[in-house]
């Protein structure tokens, strides 16, 4: 196994991790501020991808497609928050799970109704297609590199928003004591809608960005949603820093496990059996990682002690 291959896989892992972060950041923010578990976050990811595919198909512009994904998902998020989610803030977790599960059913089948069951395709823009040669002679797709860059830029922007702006202060205050900031004159329900729309927009953006390297289809959001859950369980619910570290860990474990575990088992098993066992174990690797983190720290790496 060459070091070039390893470097390439590490980059792949980083790329999938950073896209996961965009999903996980919204989830963890929504949980941190509103205390809400949102299963429908994957549907917002799907809405972003579909909006991007539709707009790209109509206009041919990838940039417009990204803007459309962001706006469509954020608007869908805001509407859902005002119509349904708002009633659930004080409800038990079971109700939140069920209501957002119902939203998934409605969104998924509704999208299938409108767009049909066949996957749509979103093309990588001309300027970002093709490989690029990195130092060390690694050939790597430019678009994936751009995804890493875009994700890091969003992460930096999110950090700036929460740490340095007035809205960010309100969001962080809302996490700690919602009654107090309401008493200080912040319109808490507007703030909640805003946070929800922000998380939804991030999910939609991730959907559109990833949609260009995978196919855009109904049900694309749920596998990512569950990975994002794993991420925030590892990182600690409510912590954006935790979501970032967790996302990178999960992305790298998932990608590298698929390559290295079968090789590792070949050292002491017959090749056939090794490939079988290795790939079966690789598909479970992130969940094993999650269990280990939980045994060590039940509330995640950066979570508040329960």
């Amino acid at each position: 196994m060459s070091s070039l291959l390893i470097a390439e896989q590490v980059l792949n892992g980083l790329q999938s991790g950073i896209m996961l972060f965009l999903m996980a950041a919204g989830l963890t923010l929504i949980f941190g501020v509103m205390g809400l578990i949102n299963l429908a976050h994957g549907s917002l990811y799907m809405i972003g991808a579909f909006a991007a595919a539709a707009v790209a198909g109509a206009t041919g512009s990838f940039l417009l497609a990204l803007v459309a994904a962001l706006i469509a998902a954020a608007c869908a998020g805001a509407i859902v928050e005002m119509v349904v989610i708002r009633r659930l803030y004080h409800a038990p977790h079971l109700d939140q799970v069920l209501a957002t599960f119902a939203l998934i059913l409605i969104f998924s089948e509704g999208t299938r109704w409108v767009f049909g069951s066949f996957p749509l395709f979103l093309d990588i823009p001309e300027a970002l297609s093709g490989p690029v040669t990195l130092p060390g002679g690694i050939q790597y797709p430019l678009y994936r590199l751009a995804l890493i860059g875009a994700g890091l830029a969003v992460a930096a922007g999110l950090w700036f928003l929460t740490a340095r702006t007035r809205i960010g202060i309100q969001i962080r205050a809302g996490e700690n004591d919602r009654e107090m900031i309401a008493a200080l004159g912040v319109d808490i329900s507007k703030l909640y809608t805003l946070v929800f729309a922000l998380g939804a927009g991030l999910a939609g953006l991730a959907g559109a960005l990833v949609g260009a390297i995978q196919s855009v289809q109904v049900g694309m959001g749920e596998p990512v949603l569950i990975l994002a859950f794993v991420v925030i369980v590892i990182g600690g619910i409510g912590s954006i820093k935790g979501a970032f570290i967790g996302a990178l860990l999960v992305g790298l474990t998932d990608t590298l496990g698929g390559i290295f575990l079968p090789e590792l088992f070949k050292l002491f098993m017959a090749p056939d059996a090794a490939t079988q066992t290795g790939s079966a174990l690789a598909s479970m690797a992130i969940y094993i990682l999650m269990s280990l983190v939980l045994i060590w720290r039940p509330s995640g790496l950066f979570g508040v002690r329960l």
């Binding site: 578990i37 977790h93 369980v233 939980l294 329960l306």
Partner: peptide, 12 residues
């Protein structure tokens, strides 16, 4: 764990 963590972990 409990609460939301429990939901997410069983899901995972």
């Amino acid at each position: 764990t409990s609460g939301v963590y429990f939901i997410m972990i069983t899901l995972a």
